[in-house]
Write a protein that binds this DNA or RNA. Structure first.
Lengths: 187, 187
DNA sequence: CGCCGAGTTGAACTGAATCAAGAAACGTGG
DNA sequence: CCACGTTTCTTGATTCAGTTCAACTCGGCG
């Protein structure tokens, strides 16, 4: 759990009390590759922090598997829209590697928000940074070519290339596996 | 300013004191069509609420004008990434119609966050809903056809069609003006 | 009038998707 | 350690959605 708490502290300073409250509300788990953290069609009641390992968020569009998000160690995984709106959503989250994760429930997080102004602030900042990340990806998708997007991923998250199957990276970038394979061949 | 404060209250309840503090920190303005609220290359120091009117966020990619976001009355406008990260950004925000807006500065907002837990909460919720909106648009861009995207816009924000020039709607949807014109002709 | 911006239409072109085979790599059980 | 099937990745041929470039229409307005 240390990795998780350290990550939180780096976003916004927390008092000892708040940290303690956080760790009481969080449960740590070791799970195997392939484990489904969140199932499509249900309300996402947990947010997960990946202490070690790798996960991806995905859904099916016209029968095809689309990878929506990839979370490596040090980042969060959830069906964010469902978690916020409290509505079921089409997204699944699965582990791509055996992982150690920290899970905190919606109800517990709400309680922490209500009890600690400093945690509410932390939450606001976390969502804000999430928004910035998504906006960056959005911009790429908006007006960058397939190759530009792959290059950018190579630069920002090179480790993923070897850990995530090509097809998943392709749909993450919004292109087909074949196209990505060809782009790769050129470079 | 009433429209603004009402919108806030609807997101999360606020005490009289908090509302008063908010209205003291906010300045209301009437501005004409074409006015540039935020200029590319600068740090975005204000967030704007459109009480009446219309704005768009845009930038230049390879010399071409790209509309990133459109904010009608009842919604917010800003260069969100710049506002959060405190870094300059390529986005401009301009008014497409004469508008009445409420502006609140970064510094004032920070002060409100620090002084009022309830406002920090409001901020967290606002960013959360922004994230959900962006995720929805992202999903469209990710794996929906040009026509699907246009249809969805027609259904969710039909009023924009007549208020925003075609070229701006096109780049907002991630397509060219010609393509949008053809899609329109078919329907 | 004639110009100007906004939208439409046409024809040629292109990046990426699709469909279809194969070739590597990988893990599991014999 | 090898043989097997499965999954992952590559490569080729064809098709298609959307772009590009260019010309043309329409309505407004000085």
């Amino acid at each position: 759990m240390k990795v998780f708490l350290d990550a939180l502290k780096q976003i916004s300073p927390l008092s000892e009390k708040a940290i303690e409250a956080f760790s009481e509300m969080t449960k740590e788990e070791e799970l195997s590759k392939g484990h489904l953290l969140i199932k499509a069609g249900t309300v996402c009641n947990y947010i997960y922090f990946i202490e070690a390992g790798l996960s991806r968020t995905f859904y099916y569009k016209d029968g095809k598997d689309v990878t929506d998000w990839i979370s490596a160690e040090g980042s969060f995984a959830a069906s964010v829209v469902s978690f916020i709106t409290r509505q079921p959503d089409i997204r699944n989250v699965e582990l791509l590697e055996p992982s150690r994760i920290c899970a905190i429930s919606y109800a517990n997080l709400e309680k922490l928000y209500a009890d600690y102004h400093e945690i509410e602030r932390l939450g606001r900042l976390l969502v804000s940074y999430g928004l910035v990340q998504l906006q960056n990806r959005f911009d790429d998708l908006h007006f960058a070519s397939a190759q530009e997007r792959y290059m950018k991923l190579m630069n920002t998250q090179p480790s993923l290339i070897n850990r995530v199957p090509l097809g998943m990276i392709a749909s993450y970038l919004g292109i087909t596996q074949e196209t990505l394979s060809r782009i790769r061949a050129k470079v």
